[in-house]
Amino acid sequence: MPHLTTYIGLADHSEQTLADSFRTVAEGHARAADVFHTCRLLASWSDEHRTALAPIIERYGEADVDEPERLHAAGLAESRDGDVGLLRDLQDLHVLATLVQTTWTVIAQGAQGLRDHELLNVATRSNAQTARQLTWLNTRMKAAAPQVLIVAP
């Protein structure tokens, strides 16, 4: 199952990237109190997904893929400044979270085929949590956008 393990590796790495990026945005925009606290919370969700995945990686192994540049999205090494920067950072997080979500969707398909209940459970739950991350990102961008686009200094 070389490609399943590739995707399990991708889930693990992209959740790690997403968690790190949430934390980068939290720290970088700490003055926006809700961004600071919510991003740290959402980072911890991604951590939990990796923890839940760990025993499955034990079972299947995690392919150290040959072509990382094709499967790994780069995280946010640093946050941008100001209100416009926040909007852009949230957009980047949304892109990362979308990669995570589609990865779980693909893994869930594989788990169905393998009748692997444990993996299916992890993929389904993680997918649902990722959807909540995406919903918050959407909500927050929508709230921030008018002021940023029209009057931000």
Binding site: A32, T139, K142, A143, P146, Q147, V151, A152, P153
Partner: peptide, 19 residues
């Protein structure tokens, strides 16, 4: 109505920057 109404703490943040 294109976004949730701005809550007080956010209003003061916008006033803080002059936005």
């Amino acid at each position: 109505h294109w976004a949730p109404p701005t809550h007080a703490m956010q209003i003061f943040s916008y006033a803080e920057t002059g936005s």
